[in-house]
Nucleic acid binder design. Structure first.
Lengths: 125, 125
DNA sequence: ATCATATGAAACCTTTAGGTGTTATGTAAA
DNA sequence: TTTACATAACACCTAAAGGTTTCATATGAT
């Protein structure tokens, strides 16, 4: 029978250390295990276990280069979290938060008012 | 010293049962403990513990009515999760997803093109 | 060939998570 | 005032989480 993945994305991000590892990999693009461990007060072995859990949830991937195992972020599974969250947004977000979302998370849009329409210019990329 | 909250929102949602409890409360608005427990194959005592963890994370609140303790969803702490997620969105979302987000999660906006500006009309509420 | 380094793997420990069952207490209803 | 019911409070259990240390193995550098 399928070896049923033991850790999902919800469990993977439950631990602060693992969230910190994700953040580190987001910033540094890719790092071998020892370099990751150097950022934390716990043992390399412990970090390896956290990396295994993150890998089970498919939040990180690795390639081997010589004697090093180099990890990088694989953010796609976070979409599951986003979907889960989106269900609850309607319980607390008001509609103005559309603007808030855009303003806070994207390049500053340009606002214009044209004939009673409240518009924002979305730059094309 | 402050009895330092033991469970945060990340840990609270790590457990499937607790996520199911949240979903149930989102649908049913409010329910006493026994009614909640009736939806699950585990004991009422176990559900009470899950509710305590959710309450520590401030994801549920309760009021007492006679001999019943009635719980309801308190979604605000999920904003912390949303903020955490938003950091990673840029690693997998392309910019078109701004539109995607608006279209999927909000009332259909109106699109207009004015003098080279690609605008969308955000209805005011 | 030797030595240092990066990782893997195993054994072990302590605390917490998630569950059980039993008993006690407060409130509603008969 | 009994009786039934909803919850609280314990004591307890097992397995998993998060950590440690030690030893082995593979690879790069001298």
């Amino acid at each position: 029978m399928e070896p049923t993945k033991k850790h999902d994305v919800f469990q993977a991000i439950a631990d602060k250390t693992r969230r910190d590892v994700l953040r580190l990999l987001a910033e540094k693009k890719e790092l071998p295990i020892s370099a990751i461990a150097a950022h934390f007060p716990i043992s390399r072995t412990a970090i390896t276990k956290h990396l295994n859990i993150l890998a089970e949830a498919n939040l990180v991937q690795s390639r081997k280069s010589g004697r090093e195992k180099i990890y990088h972020l694989h953010p796609e599974p976070l979409t599951e979290l986003k979907q889960w969250l989106s269900f609850y947004e309607r319980f607390w977000e008001n509609k103005l938060s559309i603007l808030k979302h855009v303003v806070e998370n994207e390049y500053p849009p340009t606002f214009v008012t044209i004939g009673g329409f409240f518009c924002l210019h979305l730059p094309r990329h």
